[in-house]
Amino acid sequence: MNLAIEINTLRKVYGDLVAVDDLSLDVPEGQFLGFLGPNGAGKTTTISLLCGLSNPTSGEAKICGHDVVKRYRQARQCVGVVPQELNFDIFSRVKRLLMFQGGYFGVPHRERELQVDSLLKRFDLWDKRDAQMRDLSGGMKRRVMIARALVHKPRVLILDEPTAGVDVDLRKGMWAFLRELNDAGTTILLTTHYIEEAEAMCDRIAIMDGGRVIADESTRELANRLSRESYVFTTADVSVGPVLASFENYQPVLSADGHELTLTFDKSTTDFHSVMEAVLEAGVRVTHVAPVENRLESVFLELTQKGGSS
Protein backbone atom coordinates (compact mmCIF):
# COMPACT_ATOMS: atom_id res chain seq x y z
CA MET A 1 0.00 0.00 0.00
CA ASN A 2 1.33 3.44 -0.90
CA LEU A 3 1.85 5.84 1.93
CA ALA A 4 0.56 9.40 1.65
CA ILE A 5 2.40 10.54 4.77
CA GLU A 6 5.43 8.88 6.36
CA ILE A 7 6.83 10.38 9.55
CA ASN A 8 9.95 8.82 10.97
CA THR A 9 11.37 9.85 14.40
CA LEU A 10 10.53 13.47 13.64
CA ARG A 11 11.67 15.90 16.29
CA LYS A 12 11.20 19.62 16.87
CA VAL A 13 12.79 21.37 19.81
CA TYR A 14 12.30 25.03 20.82
CA GLY A 15 14.92 25.85 23.46
CA ASP A 16 14.03 23.54 26.36
CA LEU A 17 10.66 22.57 24.95
CA VAL A 18 10.39 19.36 22.95
CA ALA A 19 7.30 20.12 20.85
CA VAL A 20 7.50 16.98 18.73
CA ASP A 21 9.29 14.09 20.38
CA ASP A 22 10.62 11.47 17.91
CA LEU A 23 7.22 11.10 16.31
CA SER A 24 6.63 8.23 13.89
CA LEU A 25 3.37 7.82 12.00
CA ASP A 26 2.35 6.42 8.62
CA VAL A 27 -0.83 7.37 6.79
CA PRO A 28 -1.78 5.18 3.81
CA GLU A 29 -3.17 6.82 0.69
CA GLY A 30 -6.90 7.38 0.81
CA GLN A 31 -7.15 7.21 4.59
CA PHE A 32 -9.08 9.73 6.69
CA LEU A 33 -7.00 10.21 9.82
CA GLY A 34 -8.21 12.07 12.90
CA PHE A 35 -5.33 13.73 14.72
CA LEU A 36 -6.44 14.49 18.24
CA GLY A 37 -4.82 15.81 21.35
CA PRO A 38 -5.03 18.53 23.97
CA ASN A 39 -3.76 22.05 23.35
CA GLY A 40 0.03 22.09 23.22
CA ALA A 41 0.24 18.39 22.32
CA GLY A 42 2.32 19.15 19.21
CA LYS A 43 -0.33 18.64 16.51
CA THR A 44 0.06 22.04 14.89
CA THR A 45 3.86 21.83 15.07
CA THR A 46 3.74 18.44 13.33
CA ILE A 47 1.54 19.89 10.59
CA SER A 48 3.88 22.87 10.22
CA LEU A 49 6.81 20.49 9.78
CA LEU A 50 4.95 18.59 7.07
CA CYS A 51 3.94 21.68 5.12
CA GLY A 52 7.09 23.80 5.12
CA LEU A 53 6.05 26.25 7.82
CA SER A 54 8.68 24.94 10.21
CA ASN A 55 12.05 23.20 9.88
CA PRO A 56 12.53 19.92 11.77
CA THR A 57 15.30 19.60 14.35
CA SER A 58 15.89 15.97 13.34
CA GLY A 59 14.16 12.98 11.81
CA GLU A 60 12.38 12.91 8.49
CA ALA A 61 8.95 13.12 6.94
CA LYS A 62 7.71 12.31 3.46
CA ILE A 63 4.58 13.25 1.58
CA CYS A 64 3.67 10.99 -1.34
CA GLY A 65 7.21 9.62 -1.12
CA HIS A 66 8.94 13.03 -1.28
CA ASP A 67 11.09 14.16 1.63
CA VAL A 68 9.66 17.42 3.00
CA VAL A 69 13.14 18.94 3.37
CA LYS A 70 15.21 17.48 0.54
CA ARG A 71 12.47 17.45 -2.10
CA TYR A 72 10.28 20.13 -0.56
CA ARG A 73 8.79 21.36 -3.81
CA GLN A 74 7.53 17.95 -4.91
CA ALA A 75 6.26 17.26 -1.38
CA ARG A 76 4.39 20.57 -1.23
CA GLN A 77 2.86 20.03 -4.65
CA CYS A 78 1.10 16.97 -3.16
CA VAL A 79 -0.32 18.65 -0.08
CA GLY A 80 -2.86 21.34 0.72
CA VAL A 81 -3.06 22.80 4.20
CA VAL A 82 -5.83 24.62 6.06
CA PRO A 83 -4.21 26.19 9.12
CA GLN A 84 -5.85 26.93 12.42
CA GLU A 85 -5.08 30.65 12.40
CA LEU A 86 -6.29 33.03 9.72
CA ASN A 87 -3.35 33.67 7.42
CA PHE A 88 -4.20 35.76 4.39
CA ASP A 89 -3.96 39.33 3.19
CA ILE A 90 -7.11 40.92 4.59
CA PHE A 91 -7.23 43.42 1.71
CA SER A 92 -7.07 40.78 -0.98
CA ARG A 93 -10.19 39.97 -2.96
CA VAL A 94 -11.48 36.42 -2.68
CA LYS A 95 -11.07 35.25 -6.27
CA ARG A 96 -7.79 37.08 -6.72
CA LEU A 97 -6.38 35.37 -3.62
CA LEU A 98 -7.38 31.93 -4.92
CA MET A 99 -6.04 32.65 -8.40
CA PHE A 100 -2.68 33.74 -6.99
CA GLN A 101 -2.43 30.63 -4.82
CA GLY A 102 -3.03 28.41 -7.84
CA GLY A 103 -0.36 30.35 -9.68
CA TYR A 104 2.20 29.76 -6.91
CA PHE A 105 1.61 26.05 -7.49
CA GLY A 106 2.17 26.46 -11.23
CA VAL A 107 -1.42 25.69 -12.27
CA PRO A 108 -1.95 27.11 -15.79
CA HIS A 109 -4.30 30.09 -15.99
CA ARG A 110 -7.23 28.48 -17.81
CA GLU A 111 -7.26 25.36 -15.63
CA ARG A 112 -6.84 27.51 -12.51
CA GLU A 113 -9.79 29.71 -13.40
CA LEU A 114 -12.04 26.65 -13.88
CA GLN A 115 -10.94 25.14 -10.58
CA VAL A 116 -11.28 28.45 -8.67
CA ASP A 117 -14.76 29.10 -10.08
CA SER A 118 -15.91 25.61 -9.20
CA LEU A 119 -14.54 25.92 -5.65
CA LEU A 120 -16.18 29.34 -5.22
CA LYS A 121 -19.52 27.82 -6.22
CA ARG A 122 -19.00 24.67 -4.13
CA PHE A 123 -18.34 26.76 -1.01
CA ASP A 124 -21.15 29.29 -1.60
CA LEU A 125 -18.64 32.07 -2.15
CA TRP A 126 -19.53 32.92 -5.74
CA ASP A 127 -21.39 36.09 -4.80
CA LYS A 128 -18.45 37.16 -2.66
CA ARG A 129 -15.74 36.54 -5.25
CA ASP A 130 -14.93 40.24 -5.57
CA ALA A 131 -15.26 41.04 -1.86
CA GLN A 132 -12.24 41.83 0.26
CA MET A 133 -11.27 39.13 2.74
CA ARG A 134 -11.72 41.51 5.69
CA ASP A 135 -15.39 41.99 4.78
CA LEU A 136 -16.25 38.27 5.00
CA SER A 137 -17.85 36.57 7.99
CA GLY A 138 -15.75 34.16 10.06
CA GLY A 139 -17.34 31.13 8.41
CA MET A 140 -16.71 32.50 4.92
CA LYS A 141 -13.06 33.16 5.74
CA ARG A 142 -12.72 29.52 6.82
CA ARG A 143 -14.31 28.39 3.57
CA VAL A 144 -11.93 30.50 1.51
CA MET A 145 -9.03 28.92 3.40
CA ILE A 146 -10.27 25.43 2.56
CA ALA A 147 -10.78 26.41 -1.09
CA ARG A 148 -7.28 27.91 -1.12
CA ALA A 149 -5.80 24.57 0.03
CA LEU A 150 -7.55 22.78 -2.84
CA VAL A 151 -6.73 25.07 -5.77
CA HIS A 152 -3.87 22.84 -6.94
CA LYS A 153 -5.87 19.60 -6.41
CA PRO A 154 -3.57 18.08 -3.78
CA ARG A 155 -3.51 14.34 -3.09
CA VAL A 156 -3.23 15.01 0.64
CA LEU A 157 -5.32 17.55 2.54
CA ILE A 158 -4.34 18.61 6.05
CA LEU A 159 -6.82 20.56 8.14
CA ASP A 160 -5.91 22.02 11.51
CA GLU A 161 -9.13 22.44 13.47
CA PRO A 162 -11.15 23.74 10.54
CA THR A 163 -14.44 23.60 12.41
CA ALA A 164 -13.33 25.45 15.54
CA GLY A 165 -15.82 28.24 16.13
CA VAL A 166 -18.04 27.58 13.11
CA ASP A 167 -21.77 27.05 13.37
CA VAL A 168 -23.51 23.68 13.14
CA ASP A 169 -24.76 24.11 9.56
CA LEU A 170 -21.35 25.02 8.24
CA ARG A 171 -19.72 22.20 10.17
CA LYS A 172 -22.15 19.68 8.69
CA GLY A 173 -21.50 21.12 5.23
CA MET A 174 -17.75 20.81 5.73
CA TRP A 175 -18.12 17.21 6.90
CA ALA A 176 -20.09 16.33 3.79
CA PHE A 177 -17.52 17.99 1.56
CA LEU A 178 -14.56 16.29 3.23
CA ARG A 179 -16.26 12.91 2.99
CA GLU A 180 -16.87 13.51 -0.71
CA LEU A 181 -13.23 14.48 -1.21
CA ASN A 182 -12.03 11.42 0.69
CA ASP A 183 -14.33 9.15 -1.33
CA ALA A 184 -12.72 10.57 -4.46
CA GLY A 185 -9.33 9.39 -3.16
CA THR A 186 -7.86 12.37 -1.29
CA THR A 187 -5.99 11.43 1.87
CA ILE A 188 -7.14 13.62 4.74
CA LEU A 189 -5.49 14.43 8.05
CA LEU A 190 -7.84 16.34 10.32
CA THR A 191 -7.10 17.72 13.75
CA THR A 192 -10.03 18.52 15.94
CA HIS A 193 -11.12 18.90 19.54
CA TYR A 194 -14.51 17.42 18.77
CA ILE A 195 -14.39 13.67 19.34
CA GLU A 196 -17.80 13.37 17.67
CA GLU A 197 -16.34 14.90 14.56
CA ALA A 198 -13.47 12.43 14.50
CA GLU A 199 -15.84 9.54 15.20
CA ALA A 200 -18.16 10.58 12.39
CA MET A 201 -15.48 11.18 9.77
CA CYS A 202 -12.30 9.27 10.38
CA ASP A 203 -11.15 5.72 9.60
CA ARG A 204 -8.42 5.96 12.15
CA ILE A 205 -7.59 8.16 15.10
CA ALA A 206 -4.17 9.08 16.45
CA ILE A 207 -3.97 10.87 19.77
CA MET A 208 -1.00 13.04 20.52
CA ASP A 209 0.19 14.29 23.88
CA GLY A 210 3.49 15.79 24.94
CA GLY A 211 4.87 15.60 21.40
CA ARG A 212 4.23 11.86 21.06
CA VAL A 213 1.49 9.65 19.68
CA ILE A 214 -0.01 7.99 22.75
CA ALA A 215 -2.75 6.11 20.92
CA ASP A 216 -3.17 5.13 17.31
CA GLU A 217 -6.07 2.89 16.50
CA SER A 218 -9.08 2.46 14.29
CA THR A 219 -12.07 4.61 15.07
CA ARG A 220 -14.01 1.49 16.06
CA GLU A 221 -11.43 0.55 18.70
CA LEU A 222 -11.44 4.04 20.10
CA ALA A 223 -15.22 4.11 20.14
CA ASN A 224 -15.14 0.99 22.31
CA ARG A 225 -12.97 2.81 24.77
CA LEU A 226 -15.49 5.58 24.71
CA SER A 227 -18.17 3.23 25.97
CA ARG A 228 -16.61 4.08 29.30
CA GLU A 229 -18.51 6.77 31.07
CA SER A 230 -17.60 8.88 34.08
CA TYR A 231 -19.79 10.64 36.63
CA VAL A 232 -18.89 13.13 39.32
CA PHE A 233 -20.71 12.70 42.64
CA THR A 234 -20.62 15.77 44.87
CA THR A 235 -20.91 14.92 48.55
CA ALA A 236 -22.01 17.04 51.45
CA ASP A 237 -19.44 15.63 53.87
CA VAL A 238 -15.88 14.45 53.46
CA SER A 239 -16.45 10.89 54.70
CA VAL A 240 -15.77 9.23 51.35
CA GLY A 241 -12.07 8.55 51.98
CA PRO A 242 -12.53 5.53 54.31
CA VAL A 243 -15.05 3.81 51.99
CA LEU A 244 -13.15 4.50 48.75
CA ALA A 245 -12.13 0.83 48.53
CA SER A 246 -15.78 -0.19 48.05
CA PHE A 247 -15.74 1.53 44.63
CA GLU A 248 -12.71 -0.32 43.33
CA ASN A 249 -14.64 -1.60 40.30
CA TYR A 250 -15.34 1.96 39.20
CA GLN A 251 -11.83 3.48 39.17
CA PRO A 252 -12.60 5.97 41.95
CA VAL A 253 -10.85 9.35 41.92
CA LEU A 254 -11.37 11.68 44.87
CA SER A 255 -10.79 15.41 44.55
CA ALA A 256 -8.25 17.04 46.86
CA ASP A 257 -10.94 18.63 49.03
CA GLY A 258 -12.70 15.26 49.37
CA HIS A 259 -16.03 16.59 48.07
CA GLU A 260 -16.00 15.23 44.54
CA LEU A 261 -15.87 11.54 43.73
CA THR A 262 -15.42 10.54 40.08
CA LEU A 263 -16.49 7.01 39.13
CA THR A 264 -15.92 5.42 35.71
CA PHE A 265 -17.65 2.36 34.31
CA ASP A 266 -18.16 0.54 31.04
CA LYS A 267 -21.73 1.21 30.02
CA SER A 268 -21.86 -1.88 27.82
CA THR A 269 -21.50 -4.14 30.90
CA THR A 270 -22.63 -1.96 33.79
CA ASP A 271 -25.64 0.30 34.14
CA PHE A 272 -25.79 3.54 36.03
CA HIS A 273 -28.32 2.08 38.46
CA SER A 274 -25.79 -0.35 39.94
CA VAL A 275 -23.21 2.41 40.33
CA MET A 276 -25.75 4.57 42.14
CA GLU A 277 -26.63 1.60 44.37
CA ALA A 278 -23.01 1.13 45.32
CA VAL A 279 -22.77 4.79 46.27
CA LEU A 280 -25.89 4.61 48.43
CA GLU A 281 -24.80 1.35 50.07
CA ALA A 282 -21.52 2.94 51.07
CA GLY A 283 -23.55 5.57 52.90
CA VAL A 284 -22.25 8.53 50.91
CA ARG A 285 -24.58 11.54 51.06
CA VAL A 286 -24.82 12.73 47.47
CA THR A 287 -25.98 16.29 46.77
CA HIS A 288 -25.33 16.41 43.04
CA VAL A 289 -24.47 14.04 40.19
CA ALA A 290 -23.10 15.13 36.82
CA PRO A 291 -21.67 13.23 33.86
CA VAL A 292 -18.14 14.12 32.78
CA GLU A 293 -18.97 15.89 29.54
CA ASN A 294 -15.65 15.85 27.79
CA ARG A 295 -15.28 12.22 26.76
CA LEU A 296 -12.08 12.89 24.86
CA GLU A 297 -10.55 14.26 27.99
CA SER A 298 -11.43 11.09 29.88
CA VAL A 299 -9.74 9.03 27.18
CA PHE A 300 -6.65 11.21 27.47
CA LEU A 301 -6.71 10.86 31.21
CA GLU A 302 -6.91 7.12 30.92
CA LEU A 303 -4.17 6.95 28.30
CA THR A 304 -1.76 9.28 30.06
CA GLN A 305 -2.26 7.43 33.35
CA LYS A 306 -1.28 4.24 31.56
CA GLY A 307 1.76 6.04 30.17
CA GLY A 308 0.74 5.51 26.58
CA SER A 309 -0.39 2.42 24.79
CA SER A 310 1.15 2.64 21.34
Binding site: C51, L53, L86, N87, Y104
Partner: peptide, 15 residues
Protein backbone atom coordinates in the same frame (compact mmCIF):
# COMPACT_ATOMS: atom_id res chain seq x y z
CA UNK B 1 2.89 39.49 4.81
CA UNK B 2 4.79 38.40 7.89
CA UNK B 3 2.49 40.44 10.12
CA UNK B 4 -0.68 38.91 8.65
CA UNK B 5 0.99 35.48 8.23
CA UNK B 6 0.04 35.65 4.54
CA UNK B 7 3.68 34.68 3.92
CA UNK B 8 2.46 31.12 4.65
CA UNK B 9 0.81 31.15 1.22
CA UNK B 10 4.27 31.26 -0.32
CA UNK B 11 5.93 28.97 2.21
CA UNK B 12 3.49 26.11 1.57
CA UNK B 13 3.65 26.54 -2.21
CA UNK B 14 5.77 24.48 -4.59
CA UNK B 15 7.98 27.44 -5.50
Amino acid sequence: QRFQRAIDELLVSSM
